[in-house]
Simulated assay, not measured.
Amino acid sequence: MNSYDIAFVPSDERSHREVLEKIHAAWFRGERPPAQPRPVIRDSWLRLKRCGLNPVNQPAAVADRARGDDAAILAVLPIVRGMIGPLLDDDHILLVLADANGTVRWRAGGRAILRRADQLAFRPGGHWSEKAVGTNAIGTALSTGTPVHVHAAEHFYLSHHGWSCAAAPVIDPRMMRPLGVIDLSSPADQANPMAVALVASVARQIGVELKEEHRRDLGRLAAATRTPGAGRWMLVDDWGWVAAAEGVASSARIRLPSGLSGSFPVDGLGVAGAERVAGGWLLRPAARSEGVQAQLELTIGAHRCWLAAPGAKATSIHELTGRRASIVAWLADHPAGVSARELAEAVYGRPDAVAAVRAEICRVNSTLGTVVHSRPYRLSETIRVIDER
Rank of each mutant, 00 (worst) to 15 (best):
L269T: 06
L269W: 00
L269R: 04
G270R: 00
A272D: 03
G273M: 10
A274T: 10
V277R: 12
W281H: 07
W281P: 02
L282P: 00
A286F: 03
A287S: 12
A287L: 08
R288F: 07
G291M: 09
G291R: 10
Q293D: 13
Q293M: 10
A294M: 03
Q295K: 15
E297P: 05
E297G: 08
L298N: 03
G301D: 01
A302T: 15
A302C: 13
H303L: 07
R304V: 04
R304C: 08
R304Q: 14
W306T: 09
W306I: 06
A308V: 06
A309K: 08
P310W: 04
G311R: 04
A314P: 07
T315H: 07
T315Q: 11
S316F: 12
I317Q: 12
H318S: 14
T321S: 13
T321K: 11
A329P: 02
V338E: 04
E342M: 06
A344T: 12
A344K: 05
E345D: 12
V347F: 02
G349S: 08
G349H: 07
R350Q: 12
D352Y: 13
D352R: 09
A355E: 14
V357M: 02
E360F: 02
C362K: 15
R363H: 09
R363W: 11
V364W: 01
N365Q: 03
T367A: 14
T367I: 09
T370L: 06
V371G: 00
